[in-house]
């Protein structure tokens, strides 16, 4: 089966036998973008979170056939070292990661959150950010989420 979609604004057309293959494995092993992580394969930990048409999606539980015609964004397309996304900038400022494995999933979830709620409260964060971090970097992460929202608000104001 042929499925077409874009990843980080690059169009891809893939040929795949099992159309129910989780998007995660297509992204990681066919398109070689390793930033999206396998943590549980059961949509429980959030390490595989990416964006599909701007919405946070757990890609281990998303059959690739549903990606037809969609715009996918992964951590590799969030920002660059030269031009980091506000979430990445905030993560750097607060020195959030420890082992780092779960962090792309958290950052993608956060990017979706501050797009929809530009000034999230602690309650907004508690409700929407429900990924699992075993190093338990939650304390710095909360600070970084508030900071990311602030950077994004400032940036979008400047652009207006």
């Amino acid at each position: 089966m042929k499925i077409s979609f874009s990843v980080n604004e690059v169009p891809h057309s893939i040929e795949i036998k099992d159309e129910n293959t989780p998007l995660l494995w297509v992204i990681r092993d066919m398109l070689h973008l390793k930033g999206t992580k396998y943590g549980c394969g059961k949509a429980a930990c959030g390490a595989c979170t990416l964006h599909v048409d701007g919405e946070a999606v757990r890609s281990c539980s998303y059959a690739v056939k549903f990606a037809e015609g969609k715009k996918i964004r992964t951590i590799e397309g969030l920002g660059t070292k030269e031009n980091p996304h506000p979430v990445q900038q905030a993560w750097i400022e607060e020195i959030v990661p420890q082992c780092g494995y779960c962090q792309p999933g958290f950052m993608m979830a956060t990017a979706a959150l501050i797009d929809k709620i530009p000034e999230p409260t602690d309650d907004d964060i508690d409700r929407n950010i429900i990924n699992v971090c075993r190093c338990a970097t939650y304390y710095r992460m909360r600070k970084a989420i508030h900071r990311a929202a602030q950077i994004q608000r400032t940036t979008s104001k400047t652009m207006e």
Partner: peptide, 15 residues
């Protein structure tokens, strides 16, 4: 929730 919705994990078919 606003950013983490049912459809963050649940798609139109069983997985």
């Amino acid at each position: 929730f606003t950013a983490t919705q049912c459809t963050t994990c649940h798609q139109p078919e069983n997985n």
